[in-house]
Design a protein around this nucleic acid. Structure first.
Length: 875
RNA sequence: GGACAGUUAGCUCAGUUGGUAGAGCGUCUUCUUGACGUGGAGAGGGUCAGGGGUUCGAGUCCCUUACUGUCCACCA
């Protein structure tokens, strides 16, 4: 295969992906002798389109999966989508509306038919988009939270929990979304601070002895008031506890009760109690046996309990009218501007009403306990660790989970009610006979389950649960869960207790939490702001590899990241660099018989780059094992660009161009080896381009994605030569520096005189000095005394004198040397300070002390030389 | 109200167990040398938010203050 001259990802990315799929590379082979590596994807909603958050999340997963696969683990990354109960239902309702029909008109069956059709048509969009990104997901195992498998798991789990008393049905205060017309769990409510008012209202005492002032943020709920509470310790009200008040705008009388819940110093110290519309009031109501009066309909309008004047009005309209009517009666004392948090539906953002309602709940305390324990014990590790605190905070204060939703799209609750006696039967299949009355007619519960109920089972429902399949036995528990921090409560926590409860085992041993992708200004990307960037457009323009690299490189664990196109450009430039370096290498492999790396002759440059390759492979592997993906990427970037391209390729060009066939062959073999390993190392980050180049190499395996990931090889690590080449690099940098400062034309070859104790070393580096610093001739003279027309470079290995004739400005040269002298003196003073500190010498580790001593010696020597040179110049 | 982050070069951010502060972008100089100008070479730029502490040694650990952000709680 030939490489095109310019890097154009559109020419090969899709093709390679199709080939990977066709060859089945993404499907693992179950091998009991090997450790599997498993990740289940956080299933994107079928309503979703790929956004930057998905792109980041899936890039991170794919990096780990490709890395582990190359290490030889049977690796399963299991794909799938989520039915997203509310989100999807809302979409379909909208669609029906646009078509001039409605949910109610179609009826449940018709609606579900339409929903499935919608799923068939659009549910696959995001799946195709994940493929564009290069995700090496095993599509043969693709799952859907509402497929047959998952449905069986859901029913089984529901029945289990019910039979254990962990699922119950009851009337509680729940969060009601009047727009979606369904109950929500606490986690599905978002709070935002809003400007509102605090209405201070007079409630007259029925005995005519005055009135009590109550304050409220929701005056329209007063029709549901069944008491006013004061604190029992509050002396102001001690005498009126037990008296009754006449509730304005109604003909009802309500008692004054005493309850600790009331804060004496807030407002008037008297609180209206509305048990049907506030969770705290509900508690108070229970304690005092108060009547519960619900005054609102499911759609957010007032019901008949609010009285004829208000019945049918929307809650916000009713609020205004209540205010006006109270004012007219002289009962409104004050309307005080007030900021407070209002709960909103996380899907439609309309404000949520706490309402009493009969719903299904999961009893959480017994499930939370073991789920807390496994994280405390370290069986499950959060990465970064600090997120475990978020998890504990939630789990330790958890309330029962409202799981029923008044929707049609979702898993229908497997509860049946006998049409004769009303007996509730919870079972996986429709019951045939009522155990109580023997009747055979049942009505299934109308409600469906919270989407997250089925998501919670994802790590095992996708692997075959409730059947003990081979997959389940081999791949469960999964290795890691990779997700953003915003669904720790929704999903991560619920998977943990579900795994423990139903599988008796943790669902994953690690949770890697990453941040969210923000825009250039640090704002959350959102539809309403219109600041989202479509990953697919970025892929079209730069390729998936560039997108992936720009997302994964240099990110900090758990931290948010800003996305902007310049970053992608920089990633693209890096890949372009890899591309061109590869093309260069390939040009030099033509007609060369490559030797295995063990058999090649190696120059010090070869030994240096091989050593650095070993170090980099080790460091990168260590980072990846710890899920430090950003760090590993940065290391590869630096190694490939600054060392392999900038130094090594340049250094070995003379060998590659050599007339000596053996020199050429060895050089080609060495660079081929290094390049191959670079491609392998980079493959998890930039899979397409590395595969494309890899397959163009003269010798390669079937695919890079199943080749083995580079590991540290001691036989290819050369400590001595590495240091030697670095010494030569120092000399080259020094000479280049002088050349640039003195404006010596690049084409101008120079002669240098060298004073050194390491003549052999420098002799072996002469070729590099020639190629990389334009040195034509090196004269060795240990007793050289520099003349006035020379510039000086002092490195640890040598003193170098560069005759520059009239280019030299003596004063400037002396100034330059003085500057260098000053900085060396500062360094020496620092070193001496440390070494003269008895504490440092006795307590610091030996290698640190020795390194400091060496540094001091080198710097002192350099300083002496510079002082001598300054003297020579000044004379 | 509580918790957790962040504060490092002009900008965006890294910094792995404490051991002489880094990158990308931008800026300046320079080079069309046979992989790459999406490039090469060189340069400039930081009292690591302030204060205190632990330590031989702190960007890194502890305390504290300020500012920014996020999450949780919800006093009606």
């Amino acid at each position: 295969m030939e490489m095109e001259k310019t890097y154009d990802p559109s020419l090969f990315e899709d093709k390679l992906y199709a080939n990977w799929m066709a060859k089945g590379y993404f499907t693992p082979h179950i091998d009991p002798k090997k450790d599997p590596y498993t990740i289940v994807i956080p299933p994107p909603n079928i309503t979703g389109q790929l956004h930057m958050g998905h792109a980041l999340n899936n890039t991170l997963q794919d990096i780990m999966v490709r890395f582990k696969r190359m290490q030889g683990h049977p690796t399963l990354w299991l794909p799938g989508t989520d039915h997203a109960s509310i989100a999807t239902e809302v979409k379909i309702v909208d669609k029906l509306k646009a078509e001039g029909t409605s949910k109610e008109e179609l009826g449940r069956e018709g609606f579900l038919k339409a929903a499935w059709e919608w799923k068939k048509q659009y549910g696959g969009r995001i799946v195709e988009q994940l493929k564009k990104l290069g995700s090496s997901l095993d599509w043969t195992r693709e799952a859907f939270t509402m497929d047959e498998k998952c449905n069986r798991a859901v029913k089984k789990v529901f029945v289990n929990l019910y039979n254990k008393g962990l699922i119950y049905r009851g009337s509680r205060i729940i969060n009601w979304c009047p727009c979606c017309k369904t109950a929500l769990s606490d986690a599905e409510v978002e709070y935002s601070e809003q400007d509102s008012f605090l209405w201070h209202i007079k409630y007259p005492l029925t005995d005519g002895s005055g009135y009590l002032t109550v304050a409220t943020t929701r005056p329209e709920t007063m029709f549901g008031d069944t008491a006013v509470a004061v604190n029992p310790k509050d002396e102001r009200y001690a005498s009126i506890i037990g008296k009754t008040l006449s509730l304005p705008l109604t003909d009802r009388e309500i008692p004054i009760v005493a309850d600790e819940y009331v804060e004496m110093d807030f407002g008037s110290g008297a609180v209206k109690i509305t048990p049907a519309h506030d969770p705290n009031d509900f508690e108070v109501g229970m304690r005092h046996n108060l009547e519960i009066i619900r005054v609102m309909n499911d759609d957010g309008t007032m019901n008949e309990k609010a009285g004829a004047a208000y019945c049918g009005l929307d809650r916000m309209v009713a609020r205004k009218k209540v205010e006006e009517d109270l004012a007219a009666l002289g009962l409104l004392i004050e309307k005080e501007p007030y900021k407070h948090n209002v709960g909103e539906c996380y899907r439609c953002h309309s404000s949520v009403e706490p309402i009493i309602s009969k719903q299904w709940f999961v009893k959480m305390k017994p499930l939370a306990e073991p789920a807390i324990k496994v994280v405390k014990q370290g069986d499950i590790e959060f990465i970064p660790e600090r997120f475990s605190k978020v998890y504990f905070g939630w789990m330790e204060n958890i309330k029962d989970w409202c799981i029923s939703r008044q929707l049609w799209w979702g898993h229908r609750i497997p509860a049946y009610y006998c049409e004769e006696c009303g007996e509730t039967i919870v079972a996986e299949d429709t019951p045939t006979k009522c155990p109580k009355c023997g009747c055979t007619h049942f009505k299934q519960d109308e409600d469906v389950l919270d989407t997250w109920f089925s998501s919670a089972l994802w790590p095992f429902s996708t692997l075959g649960y409730p059947d003990q399949t081979d997959d389940l036995k081999y791949f469960y528990p999964t290795s890691v869960l990779i997700t953003a921090y915003d669904i720790i409560f929704f999903w991560v926590a619920r998977m943990i207790f579900s795994g423990l409860e139903h599988m008796g085992e943790i669902p994953f041993s690690k949770v890697m939490i990453h941040g969210i992708v923000r825009d250039k200004l640090g704002r959350k990307m959102s539809k309403s702001l219109g600041n989202g960037i479509d990953p697919l457009l970025i892929i079209d323009k730069y390729g998936a590899d560039s997108l992936r690299f720009s997302l994964a490189n240099g990110i900090a664990p758990g931290g948010d990241t800003r996305f902007y196109e310049e970053k992608v450009e920089s990633a693209r430039n890096f890949i372009n660099k890899v591309w061109n370096a590869s093309r260069f290498v390939m040009m030099n492999l033509e007609n060369v018989e490559l030797l295995p790396i063990e058999k090649t002759d190696k120059t010090i440059a070869d030994r240096w780059i091989l050593s650095r390759l070993q170090e980099t492979a080790k460091a990168v592997t260590d980072n990846l094992e710890k899920y430090e993906i950003g760090l590993a990427g940065a290391k590869m970037y630096d190694f490939v660009w600054s060392e392999f391209c900038d130094w090594y390729i340049e250094a070995i060009k003379p060998s590659l161009y050599s007339d000596d066939a053996a020199v050429k062959q060895n050089a080609a073999s060495n660079i081929y080896y290094v390049l191959t390993n670079i491609l392998k190392m980079l493959h998890p980050y930039i899979p397409f381009v590395t595969e494309h180049i890899y397959l163009s190499l003269p010798i390669h395996e079937e695919t890079i994605m199943l080749s083995s990931y580079p590991t540290y090889r001691d036989d290819l690590y050369f400590e001595k030569e590495k240091a030697e080449f670095e010494a030569v690099m120092d000399m080259i940098k020094g000479i280049r520096n002088i050349r640039a400062e003195m404006n010596v034309a690049p084409s101008k070859r120079i002669h240098i005189t060298v004073k050194t104790a390491n003549e052999d070393l420098i002799k072996s580096g002469e070729g590099y000095l020639a190629k990389l610093a334009g040195v034509e001739k090196v004269i060795y003279d240990a007793s050289y005394i520099p003349g006035k027309k020379e510039s000086t470079v002092v490195t640890a290995a040598a003193e170098i004198y560069i005759p520059l004739g009239d280019l030299i400005d003596y004063d400037k040269e002396i100034e330059r040397l003085e500057k260098e002298k000053a900085s060396l003196e500062k360094e020496i003073a620092r070193s001496k300070g440390m070494l003269n500190n008895p504490g440092f010498v006795s307590r610091a580790p030996e290698n640190v002390v020795n390194a400091e001593r060496d540094r001091l010696a080198v710097n002192e020597e350099k300083l002496a030389k510079i002082i001598a040179n300054i003297k020579a110049f000044s004379d």
